[in-house]
Simulated scan of single mutants.
Amino acid sequence: MMERIFDLMLFDLDGTLVETAPEIMDAVNDTLDRFKLSQVTQQQVNDWIGHGTQALLVQALADRSGMTVEATRRSELLRQMVPVYDGFYRQRCGTRSHLYPHVRETLLSLRAQGVKLAVVTNKESRYTRVVLDVHQLRDLFDEVVSGDSFASKKPDPVGVAHCLEKFGVARERTLFVGDSSIDAATARHAGVAVWLLPYGYNMGQPIEACAPDRVIADFSSLPGSGFAA
């Protein structure tokens, strides 16, 4: 049997495990419609994903209202929009999202080999739970760290540090798998290896610009996937 390279693998959620952008756009546009604002495009939403729901709504509202980003963050309108979006996203979640290639079989293979698996996402826990449940992923992970699990979120490495401590795994035996510069910075701050996927949401920038340890086409390239040589 090939020697195991990593004892702990950490995964971003949106754009890494699950393609969620279409239904996120639907919920954003549902919300904008409710407040009589014009809709945004899929590409805009793709470029805004990564820093959590609040940041996404700030960008969408600033773009549609003409307010500055700073004014939008302080606005009463934003405060009103957050719970409305919450309701729409719960309705939309799972309607137009799907797992990326080889995700489920790779996670099952890694678990069978004894690799500890965790999600580290900036998505709020109320949404993270829904996405994982809809796609029947929650039982495949030993730990889930969401954007509101700690006082700060990625690229702060607190979530990674939490997992390292919980599982007692050394940094050199840990891999972070993501799709953005946020994930790359998180891994670098935590001192762990980072492999990035090119199909997710990286604010419109080429993934190679993040200088990861490796760019992989999909989950079949992960060690222990059952596909990787």
Rank of each mutant, 00 (worst) to 15 (best):
D7V: 08
L10N: 04
L10R: 05
F11A: 04
F11Y: 08
D12A: 07
G15Y: 00
E19G: 01
E19P: 00
E19D: 13
T20G: 00
M25F: 00
D26Y: 01
D26V: 01
A27K: 02
A27F: 06
V28S: 00
D30P: 11
L32Y: 01
D33A: 14
R34K: 15
F35N: 12
K36W: 06
L37M: 13
Q39H: 14
D47G: 09
W48E: 01
H51A: 14
T53F: 05
L56G: 11
L57V: 10
A60F: 04
D63Q: 13
S65G: 03
V69N: 07
V69L: 14
V69S: 11
A71G: 10
A71K: 15
R74Q: 15
S75P: 04
L78E: 02
V84E: 14
R92D: 00
C93P: 02
G94C: 08
R96E: 00
L99N: 07
R104E: 10
T106C: 12
L107V: 10
L107H: 06
A112N: 15
Q113G: 13
G114I: 09
G114F: 08
L117S: 12
A118Y: 02
V120D: 03
Y127W: 04
V130W: 08
L132F: 05
D139W: 09
L140V: 11
F141D: 09
V145W: 03
S146F: 12
S146G: 14
G147T: 12
S149Q: 10
A151W: 08
K154S: 04
P155S: 10
P155N: 10
V158W: 03
V160E: 09
V160C: 11
K166E: 10
K166C: 05
G168F: 04
R171F: 10
R173G: 11
T174Q: 07
T174I: 07
A184Q: 06
A187P: 02
A187V: 02
R188P: 03
R188F: 05
H189T: 13
A190N: 08
G191Q: 10
V192W: 02
V194W: 03
W195K: 02
Y201V: 02
Y201C: 02
M203D: 15
P206G: 12
I207S: 01
P212Q: 03
P212I: 03
R214G: 09
I216C: 09
D218R: 07
D218M: 10
S220D: 05
S221K: 13
F227H: 15
A229N: 14
A229C: 11
